[in-house]
Nucleic acid binder design. Structure first.
Ligand SMILES: [Zn+2]
Ligand SMILES: [Zn+2]
Ligand SMILES: [Zn+2]
Ligand SMILES: [Zn+2]
Lengths: 149, 149
DNA sequence: CGCTAGATGAGACTGAATCGCAACTAGACG
DNA sequence: CGTCTAGTTGCGATTCAGTCTCATCTAGCG
């Protein structure tokens, strides 16, 4: 059961060392259901045989962000969180405001809107962030059953 | 020249006190070209006859955010900034990545995209944030002339 | 003018994130 | 296998945005 963690193999492909610390961070991340904070990763690593230093957690997360394996999200609360995601494809995240689960979505027709904005403002838009928040199907069901009780 | 600062009159309408500190913050904000940080406001207030305490700057900004006169933006750099904006209308901001200037844009057809996302993910989306970054017309012109030189 | 709820200032405090540097190690090479 | 070295890490000190507490102050209303 040498299940190769996708995060680890991507690290390898990028010519980065596969250190103990990075393995621990990678594992901590892949076991997160939705978004997570640096602190979550730190806490998860402490539950393992070898704890990772705080600074290293941040360094690893930065690295993973550079590689596009993880993305930063700013929650409406103002907290900084991360989401694991597919590299190499521009996309956005829909985050459940109850449980934190997140799924990726593509552009789905945003392009024409961007063009409209460019022509109406005169800006040359070169990047954008779309963050969507709401209830995931599960939490929606839970909320509905609670309401009917 | 009793030019009533729009921020101040909105504060009055909301039944909030028009204190010296709030005037100073309001002035500091209206003289900002684009986005600004809490620290910017603090610095600006220090240049005036009466400096405003750090805590008060944050309290005032929070208040203005509640009133919808100012909005928080998370810059790609990760910094937290604010943008002055029109209250009472859902809109988004296009921010110049060179000079920080920002303009507001409406939905411009985002609604159908949200619906598409809802049906494809099963999420019930109740809020979203769209932040656009690029070069404003002026900075674009500057960049172009520099390039041709 | 005097009262009081609401607002402020000052500075201690918190906790996330960064830094500097000596010690460590992954992986290449022979 | 050993050796070597650039890339990593741990640790502790540090920074820095943002929050909190509480005594003092004041805007706005009689
Ligand atoms: Zn959920
Ligand atoms: Zn997009
Ligand atoms: Zn500009
Ligand atoms: Zn919108």
């Amino acid at each position: 059961m040498q299940q190769p963690n996708p995060v680890l193999s991507a690290l390898g492909d990028a010519g980065k060392r596969l250190t103990i610390a990075r393995r621990a961070v990678a594992e901590a991340i892949t076991e997160q259901a939705g978004h997570f904070t640096a602190e979550d990763v730190l806490a998860a690593s402490r539950l393992r045989r070898r704890a990772v230093a705080r600074a290293t957690v941040f360094r690893s997360l930065d690295l993973l962000v550079d590689l596009g394996l993880v993305e930063r999200v700013d929650l409406p609360s103002g907290d900084h969180a991360y989401v694991a995601c597919e590299p190499d494809a521009h996309h956005h995240h829909v985050v459940c405001s109850a449980c934190g689960r997140s799924v990726e979505v593509g552009e789905l027709g945003l392009r024409p809107i961007l063009e409209r904005i460019e022509s109406s403002t005169g800006f040359a838009i070169d990047s954008h962030r779309l963050e969507l928040f709401g209830l995931c199907p599960e939490c929606r069901a839970t909320a509905a059953s609670k309401r009917s009780a």
